[in-house]
Design a protein around this nucleic acid. Sequence first.
DNA 1: GTCTATACACAGATAGAC
DNA 2: GTCTATCTGTGTATAGAC
Lengths: 227, 227
Amino acid sequence: MKYTEFIDSVPDSRLDICRAVFIANREKIKIKKEKTILKNLEKIFDATLKIGIEKGFQAMTMRDLSSGAGLSMGGLYSYFSSKDEILRASLSEGRKIVWQILDEFIQGETAPIAKLEIALEVHLFLTEKLHKWFYFSYMEAKNLNPEDRKNAVQSELYTEKLIEGILIDGQKTGVFRQTNHKLAASVIKAMLQDWYLKRGKYSRRNITVDQYAHFIIGFIRPFYLKS
Amino acid sequence: MKYTEFIDSVPDSRLDICRAVFIANREKIKIKKEKTILKNLEKIFDATLKIGIEKGFQAMTMRDLSSGAGLSMGGLYSYFSSKDEILRASLSEGRKIVWQILDEFIQGETAPIAKLEIALEVHLFLTEKLHKWFYFSYMEAKNLNPEDRKNAVQSELYTEKLIEGILIDGQKTGVFRQTNHKLAASVIKAMLQDWYLKRGKYSRRNITVDQYAHFIIGFIRPFYLKS
DNA sequence: GTCTATACACAGATAGAC
DNA sequence: GTCTATCTGTGTATAGAC
């Protein structure tokens, strides 16, 4: 699959995230009109990601955010009751959308080799599409309260479990080698994460996500494939 | 090489870092006695890493740091003129020590396979020994001023260049395959970084740095070796 | 629904006693 | 050399006008 094909086949996840936040916080938000809420939530989240990535969430002041999002301070606080609440909402609702899309794509496949490659591709494509969100989530998870933080860590492990499962299945059906699947999944995960953690570096070198996906798949193949 | 052997053969880098900071900032520091300075610098840096990793450098207040280091606010400010200065000093002087040790160990080797494996091992061992420092550097580099930040990024690329160089040499002498060495170095770097970025996860799974090093080397070998 | 003006707490930094 | 006490700016959050 190519990135452009992927993009064409998934709905606008940014809007989905806003809608999910709206539904999850319907009672807390003081505004009534759905259309107004969605419009402003999008502005707030866009600005949060932009400024939060530049200088870190802690260093971003509510005044920064208010001018970045084009709302007054008072306006902001009719959507979220505190700065921490903005962080929590930004991270938690996004996650659900992400796993939903990932699941959808790999469900069809059963052959281990194809399944592994699809999982890697879709993960990279998702992180490309939502790269600001992934980077921000990674860097700011430590600023969540303990409970939400625990959820974030759990979710981090989801990709790893997914890859590990595919490796185990592949070994059972005899196409993959016997290896330390848990460790293998960890380092494969690390390679996937590098794409969004060092997005700037790869941009500067003109590496596209398609090239990176192709390279990663080729890189790990000689390791897990029976030779 | 084993981690314990490595530890025995390098001097106490934490003290070296304090000494380097002392020398680099001799004029700015208002205290005269070297012994006092070294003792307090160590307390300050230890507390900075501890608290900075827990809640992030921005969220750490000077009051947090002062109580963590066992000095008064006034006392702190006779060592550093500002909070940013503490960050700058923590990151910049450490880097030099790190590259110095890495260079020392790989200089002797010329055979590409051995050289690559030593480089990976020593890098992992160094990040194990100074894992708080590495984690902190990675997470807080974005809070440096533009110039120091540029240095931090450059230094990040050093490992990558080193690995790339070994891969190129290995190909020239005919033991390594022809690959995209730049990309290969990037993803190998990502695997090395995972060790200190996810230190807690590997601890919980009882993976030692020796096991991780062994696994990584085995993981990438089938990729770069001519078969 | 959105704004302006402001309360109040707490941050970084310093002066000057000991 | 180290401390306590304090200044001043800025941050989050809210009240109430429009």
